[in-house]
Simulated assay, not measured.
Amino acid sequence: MATAPKKPTPAHRRALLAALADDKGRVPESTNVRVQDAIWLAHWVTEVTNTGRAAAGARWAGYDGPTFLSINSSGRRVLLTEAGHAALHGATPEGRLPENTPWPTAMTLHRDGLIEFRDTVGTVHPNDGDDGVRGPQYAPYLTAIGRRLATGFPQAHRTPETV
């Protein structure tokens, strides 16, 4: 029997990051079956219906429609190191990461599409503008995907009255 991975491989990370980019958190159907099985075994995804309801409960109630894998809070958490978690969750309401965010952490978050670099007027730049002499010229800000990783999906914030 297969064992659940403790840490995501690059393929697992790609699938989980792709799920973050989807409005409903869905793992792409084109994802390799072995990757899907591994992230399911690791409990980084949940099987849900098209409406976001847990598939197991829906099946119990008679549902026999399509289901898909959706990233859950464990899947979001496993994508971050401790430093990455602190940086994303320490962002200002405007999305600016803390001043003390380590450079390697910012570069990893940028590589994964979780942050972008902006100048003082809000223009996005492809990197932090460090020329090796003056240091970083642009500040790191959360992207929409980075904000989603830090806060979850809208359906995670529904109240019982809106479900």
Rank of each mutant, 00 (worst) to 15 (best):
A87L: 12
G132S: 04
L114G: 01
P104D: 10
A54F: 08
A56M: 11
R111Q: 12
T92P: 02
A91E: 05
T123Q: 14
L41M: 15
G84F: 04
Y63L: 13
E47P: 11
A86H: 14
G129A: 03
P66F: 11
V121Y: 13
R59F: 13
N50D: 14
R77S: 11
H110Q: 12
L80V: 09
V48K: 09
P104E: 10
L88Y: 03
L79M: 04
L97Q: 09
T143V: 03
D119S: 06
T123V: 15
L41F: 14
A144D: 08
G122Y: 07
Y141W: 03
A42K: 11
S70W: 03
G65D: 12
V48E: 14
A86L: 14
S74T: 09
Y138V: 00
G65C: 13
T101D: 10
G52L: 08
N127F: 07
G65K: 12
S74I: 01
V124L: 03
H110P: 03
L109V: 01
H85I: 00
T143N: 02
Y138Q: 04
Q137E: 05
A144C: 01
D64K: 11
G132P: 01
A139F: 10
L97V: 11
G75Q: 08
L114E: 04
S70P: 05
T67V: 15
G95Y: 02
S73K: 06
T120S: 14
T92V: 07
N100T: 14
L142I: 05
Y138D: 02
A61T: 12
D128N: 12
V78R: 03
L80H: 02
I145H: 01
L97Y: 02
L41D: 15
A144H: 05
L97E: 10
A56N: 09
L109F: 00
A58E: 15
A87M: 12
T51A: 14
L114D: 05
T81W: 02
D130Y: 00
G57E: 14
A61E: 15
Y138I: 00
P98W: 04
G52F: 05
A83Q: 11
T143R: 03
L109K: 02
G52H: 07
R134Y: 05
L88N: 04
N100E: 14
E47V: 13
P102I: 12
G113H: 02
A54N: 15
H43L: 14
T108P: 00
A83E: 13
E116Q: 15
T92S: 15
I145S: 05
W103C: 00
L79I: 00
F68Q: 13
L142T: 10
G62R: 06
M107E: 14
L80D: 08
V124E: 07
W44I: 08
G90K: 04
D112T: 00
A56S: 12
A144L: 07
L69Q: 07
H125S: 09
H85A: 08
V78W: 01
P98H: 01
E116A: 15
D64T: 10
A91T: 05
D119N: 07
G90F: 04
L109I: 04
L142W: 05
G62Q: 10
A54W: 06
R53C: 09
S74K: 10
T81I: 01
E94C: 00
G135Y: 01
V48C: 10
R96I: 06
A106T: 13
G113D: 03
R96E: 15
G52A: 10
G84S: 06
N127R: 07
F117A: 01
P136Y: 02
N72P: 12
Y138R: 00
R76H: 06
A61H: 13
A58T: 11
